[in-house]
């Protein structure tokens, strides 16, 4: 009887231990917040920036509302707003000071790879990201305006932007920005420039005072919005 009890006790102790350990291991959170103070501050700053942009947007909308309330001619204000939105969406031609980036093929003596037909899409995406980080306002690759729904992808070994093949080399990338000089310097020392060089592309940028970007010539495919008809 005594041995039996000891055996039972041994087993129940084990069961208890296993349950406790399993319970603890499974209730452990999947990912822990391991950011240090610096990273937390950065996150805080980016959140503040978001807040600021949202506030600015709110102010703008309030202003438009105020204008609409004040003026008799609502259509005029609506027209202004519409033009403004169209410019933001890339549906109009824009002119301004900016940057002309040229990408061309360059071969050194030791080049042993195959022919280069087009710029790989990931490089273009990287470049666009860097330009946006540096404060570019409008971007066009070749004759294709980059808008929020632009797709850059590869088909049959050639790169498509907005569903169109890129023109032949050299490829021109036009960028409109407030401060072309600083973007020019940032781009010449950027990671994108290095990566283009690794892939046998020559990457050059020149600030230009008067640059015209084409408009987005396709139809926007709007998936999650629809016009609301006022009840008549």
């Amino acid at each position: 009887m005594k041995i039996r009890m000891i055996l039972y006790t041994f087993l129940t102790t084990m069961i208890g231990l296993l349950i406790a350990v399993l319970f603890q291991s499974n209730s452990e959170p999947d990912s822990r917040d391991t950011r240090n103070i610096g990273e937390l501050r950065q996150a805080l700053i980016s959140e503040r920036e978001t807040q600021q942009t949202l506030n600015e947007e709110l102010n703008r909308q309030m202003e438009i509302l105020y204008q609409l309330e004040q003026t008799e001619d609502v259509e005029l204000v609506m027209g202004d707003v519409m033009e403004d939105l169209q410019e933001q969406a890339g549906l109009t031609e824009v002119t301004g000071s900016g940057l002309l980036i040229e990408i061309d093929i360059v071969f050194d003596e030791n080049y042993t790879g195959g022919g280069i037909k087009s710029v790989p899409p990931y490089l273009l995406r990287l470049l666009i990201n860097e330009l946006n980080i540096q404060g570019a306002q409008h971007i066009a690759i070749g004759n294709q305006r980059i808008v929020s729904t632009t797709a850059i992808r590869e088909a049959n070994g050639r790169t498509l932007v907005n569903g169109n093949w890129l023109s032949q080399f050299p490829i021109e990338i036009k960028v409109i920005a407030d401060d072309p000089e600083s973007i020019h310097h940032a781009m010449m020392s950027s990671q994108a420039s290095d990566l283009f060089n690794y892939d046998n592309f020559r990457f050059s940028s020149t600030p230009i005072d008067n640059l015209t970007l084409p408009s987005f010539d396709k139809n926007y495919r709007v998936r999650f919005m629809e016009p609301v008809q006022e009840d008549s």
């Binding site: 102790t13 406790a20 350990v21």
Partner: peptide, 20 residues
């Protein structure tokens, strides 16, 4: 005795903070 053993095991498991 077995019940005490069960409790002992549970306590041991929770307080030693073993994670597998």
């Amino acid at each position: 005795l077995p019940l005490i053993g069960l409790l002992l095991g549970l306590l041991l498991g929770f307080f030693t903070n073993v994670n597998i």
